[in-house]
Amino acid sequence: MIMTEIKNIKKKYGKKIVLEDISFSVQEGKCVGILGGNGCGKSTLLSILAGVQKADNGSFLWEGADLFADGKVRSEILGYVPQGNPLMEELTAWDNLRLWYDKESLKKELEEGVLAMLGIPGFIRVPVKKMSGGMKKRLSIGCAVANRPKLLLLDEPSAALDLVCKERIGNYLRDFKAQGGSIILATHDVPELELCDELFIMKEGVLEPYTFDGNVHHLVGRL
């Protein structure tokens, strides 16, 4: 059973403590959800885990390998979808995907792989600037999983998407979990909570375990 361990991650911006001793683990085939208000540090945590920023302290272990120290292994096993859409607006879906897939594997994935599952063939030649939010998000996920990651870091993947898109992405993530992939998900979205096997609330840089009882008001009260 592969386990991803995050231990004692700390981050400060000047005197402001953004992350204070963040520790948790993610099992193979499981999803950990991190809830929190705007500016609580969820995105900062994910960007640290993705290697975009450096932590002041702490470790990020996968199968015993320190992913903070080994950027090559990190980029091989991680897939990261930040907030917003990491796409080149002038180019088509095909051109964006070609940055991450070689031609043969791209064709294969479009026919019967993860890209087909995300419904990308339907808009493969559409320029990104003409796509809807849902299309862009699905394409972003398609780009992120090009390296067949073992661990997905998702920062609010369903933000501003309609129910159909959310369902589509949800189906893909369920499938990803079923195939043994692990997910760390930062979210505001109640439907996304159903994906999560374990929940945490981030408040003032501190992570606390949380069990969602289905009552949104209780959840809001905790935030």
Partner: peptide, 15 residues
């Protein structure tokens, strides 16, 4: 103009 910094983050995460 209108460049999303998320692309820069994404590229960095990809090495």
């Amino acid at each position: 103009m209108k460049r999303d910094v998320s692309l820069a983050k994404f590229l960095k995460a990809k090495g």
